[in-house]
């Protein structure tokens, strides 16, 4: 059977090294399978996360040959196996051990977002075309790969001021819910710091769920922030409209 070399980061907050492991390669094998092989046969203490092995839970994120990926959806035969396959933890979050990182900050951000609030007296009817765009946002599996690549977090570490693409997606899902009545625009501008985003689209490129993060979530939200804060005429028109809704 063919073999490949996995070069895996082994270490913790105190530092670490890249270690090589030889693994057999079976047809259709994914990087997560290879990591499990290492865990099962060579390094039982290899720290990593996974649950579904089918791209549904967003647990297995890592950087494979420098690219942020779900390891359960990265086929070994899509990689150059003449070279070692490098697997590192996501860079934007502190390492716990090996490939497991401390993503707790994301859960803190999430807590700031006001939940769905149905408008007073709504009728619980919605058309498919009205929910389509929100359903796109709700596909998010919280893999945090978009958070990992966003330069505002990755290079500038603005975790205190910036919510990150994942949470713009979440807010978009709430704001565009046909029956929602809460206002999250001040939150977007202040606590989530949407202004820091300069629409580089790196987040959209890595999203395994193919959510159009920038075009469908961030840009429309930025427009709402502009309307609310910087365009008094539009703001009045909007008020009249929403009163008549």
């Amino acid at each position: 059977m063919a073999e490949a070399t996995l070069r895996i980061f082994r270490g913790d907050q105190g530092g670490g090294t890249m270690k090589d492991y030889r693994v057999p390669v079976a047809p259709g094998m994914v990087v997560l399978d290879a990591l499990h092989h290492v865990q099962g046969h060579q390094a039982p203490d290899l720290g990593l996360r996974w649950n579904c092995k089918a791209g549904k839970c967003g647990s297995c994120s890592a950087e494979v040959n420098g690219r942020p990926r779900l390891t359960c959806k990265t086929r070994m035969d899509s990689l150059d196996l003449t070279q070692p396959v490098e697997v590192r933890p996501m860079k934007s979050f502190p390492v716990i051990k090996d490939l497991a990182t401390d993503v707790s900050w994301n859960y803190q951000v999430n807590k700031k977002i006001p939940p769905f609030q149905p408008r007073e007296g709504v009728e619980w009817k919605m058309q498919q075309h009205d929910v389509d765009r929100v359903q796109e946002f709700r596909k998010c599996i919280e893999c945090f790969l978009c958070q990992n690549v966003c330069h505002v977090l990755r290079d500038h570490d603005k975790k205190a001021e910036f919510g990150g693409p994942r949470f713009f997606v979440r807010v978009a899902g709430l704001e565009m819910h046909p029956l929602d009545g809460a206002d999250r625009i001040p939150l977007l501008k202040d606590a989530l710091g949407i202004g820091y985003c300069n629409i580089t689209k790196c987040c959209t490129e890595v999203c395994p769920e193919e959510i159009h993060i920038t075009d469908n979530a961030i840009i429309p939200l930025k427009e709402r922030v502009v309307d609310e804060y910087y365009d008094p005429v539009l703001k009045i028109v909007k008020k009249i409209f929403s009163a008549g809704r």
């Binding site: 865990q39 039982p44 203490d45 720290g47 090996d98």
Partner: peptide, 14 residues
């Protein structure tokens, strides 16, 4: 037998 430390150690959990 379990190798390594008590930190995030799947072999130990297993």
């Amino acid at each position: 037998k379990v190798e390594g430390s008590r930190m995030f150690n799947p072999g130990w959990h297993m």
